[in-house]
Simulated assay, not measured.
Amino acid sequence: MNKETKILLLGAGPMAIEYAKILKHQNINFITIGNTRNGALKFEEEINTKVVLGGIENWIKNNTLINLSLYKVIVTVNENILGTIAKLLISSGFKNILVEKPGGLDFEDIQSVNNLAIENKANIYIAYNRRFFSSTLTVRDLIELDGGVTSFNFEFTEWGHIIKDLVKNEGVLGQWFIQNSSHVIDLAFYIGGNPYVLKSFVKGGQSWHPNGTIFSGAGISDKNALFSYNANWESAGRWWVEFLTTENRYIMKPMEQLFVQRRGSIKIEQIELEDELDKRFKPGLYKQVEAFLNSPTKLMKIEEQIKMLPFYKTMIEGDIINI
């Protein structure tokens, strides 16, 4: 990281606390900007760092002589205003911004962030920390040694009976597929290849998520790997991903761990991981922060997210895409 680079951390909630723990551990100075005194008090108590209250808009107004392009910004605000804050930052002159997944409230919001970023030549990165799990980094290497993925499967079942009672800002639960399940879907396609052919089926729906609660589909990725997925938010299940090569089946269930079933065997063995950082900090977050500060090409750029949105839309609506 350039010595002149400065860090802004927007938000003082639980996710901001996780980022702050890592920044402090790396001896990186940062400014935390929050809106509510209650949230700030908890942050200050745990991190022992003051929070600047009043929100980012007021901070910008009070710092008109500062070159905002020298700042790198981490955005951890509430899901419903992710896009709004990202667009405010872009319009104000910030050029390097890490926004918590999925980069906005919904598809249209994410698209508008991207449009503004292009117009202002800003770099917007989407924070999918599971890309940086030790299990993810390890399985990528193992798959490459095996000669590549030939097929993969994943499940993104959500516990609907619990989610329906979560206290969230207006509109967030209705976008739960992109707001939360995209963690699993992004990881599956990140390793197995993005969809090239996709056929999807949807049924069900609840008042909190009318666009379906039971999902199934299959297709071919751009790595020429066949894939399938399912999720039933009205039943039991969990998140998991598995990748198959000509030699092995790699299982991430739970996703923080990695197991292997070797060809010709029914035995499933756990693979030992170098995951000290994932145990000490929120899994994947430490290396994600490192990437943002020092090698951002390892992160998802918002342009990649935009390319995935038509496939996410198909998975929600049950249409067919063949591009």
Rank of each mutant, 00 (worst) to 15 (best):
F156Q: 02
F259M: 06
I323V: 15
K42T: 14
L173G: 10
F154S: 01
S207P: 12
E144F: 12
N322I: 15
G318R: 05
F311Q: 04
Y19K: 03
F215R: 05
V73A: 01
W233D: 13
E170V: 09
N62E: 13
F30I: 00
V241Q: 08
Q111H: 15
T5E: 14
P296Q: 02
E100T: 10
D275S: 10
R140Y: 10
Y128P: 07
L142E: 01
K21M: 11
L53M: 03
I320E: 07
P210N: 05
F152Q: 01
L244F: 12
Y19A: 08
A225R: 02
P210A: 04
I33L: 01
Q261H: 09
L293Q: 06
I31C: 09
Q206A: 11
T297M: 14
T246P: 13
V52F: 14
G192M: 04
A291D: 09
F30P: 08
N114H: 15
V241W: 09
L65W: 10
P310R: 06
T36C: 06
L293D: 08
L70A: 12
I118N: 13
V149M: 00
K50R: 07
K42P: 09
V113F: 07
N120W: 12
Y229Q: 01
R131N: 15
N232G: 01
D165P: 11
F133E: 03
Y312S: 00
D146K: 02
G54K: 03
D275T: 05
G219D: 03
Q111F: 15
Q261D: 05
